[in-house]
Design a protein around this nucleic acid. Structure first.
Lengths: 141, 141
DNA sequence: CAGGATCCGGTCCGATACTG
DNA sequence: CAGTATCGGACCGGATCCTG
């Protein structure tokens, strides 16, 4: 019949099933949107910063810790995360105003879910770098 | 879904450790780049399409299956994925030319790693929608 | 202190035309 | 068939100024 790749067809088919059940809908609908959102440069970073502290963080503190982000984008990011229920925003009607951001259980769980992926990526960083090097040197002829 | 409010500090600290070990480097360095890359709208989609077939796919086939993508962006995406060693590109010097794309073991494993995350997202889609609704209706006063 | 409003340069993306 | 090249528009993010 058809030539198969390096893996056994069963493995692929098995993966396919899971993917069709779990990822397919996410891909073509709203989950894809979420994947993109959290996978941007800043959102995960912000969640990570909030996770490092067991207490809520003020806007300024987050701004300090997520170095490189502009105030505008940080505000946008925080709004998005709040909208998706990943963080909570608490406004203290003081003067000067004070706003605390904290991870929600949902946001916490999301980090837990993403963690193994992050670990896997770091573990295979060498493979990625090698692949890139091969590709680049191959094209630079 | 677990309905725990503010988690115990120990849990957070525990998470922190893992995050610091696994995600921190990825965040601030190259892994972050990879996270963003694969999490874009198309890359994962392309990988997913390739995973559905146990045989390599031609450019046209991929283009058909990843509906909505332009030819230009598809080319870019495929190049990226190839550069990162997630897919393989095989050129047959025919006329008309023929190019086959297939998942590499690395790309295959990446999908396996991402799957549980995708599943978790779909499982909690309701929570996300609810959070968004709450947020939107709260602001629309 | 937190963040809204504005301007503006860089980037991304789609459509089109063209090549091996 | 599988791209590359180019152009114009949309969008994104940064810097600055201003408000409660």
């Amino acid at each position: 019949m058809e030539a198969k790749t390096t893996d056994e067809p069963e493995e692929i088919a098995d993966l396919c099933e899971d993917l069709c059940e779990g990822l397919a809908e996410a891909q073509e609908n709203l989950g894809c949107e979420l994947m993109e959102r959290i996978a941007g440069k800043w959102p995960l970073w912000v969640l990570y910063v909030l996770a490092q502290n067991d207490e809520p963080l003020r806007f300024s503190r987050v701004h300090e810790r997520v170095e490189g982000i502009s105030q505008k984008v940080l505000t946008q990011t925080l709004r998005q995360l709040e909208r998706d229920g990943l963080i909570s925003r608490t406004l203290y009607p003081q003067v000067p105003p004070r706003v605390d951001y904290a991870l929600t259980p949902l946001g916490h769980e999301l980090l837990v879910q993403i963690m193994p992926l992050g670990r896997w990526i770091t573990d295979h960083m060498g493979a990625f770098e090698a692949a890139r090097h091969d590709f680049d040197s191959g094209k630079a002829k």
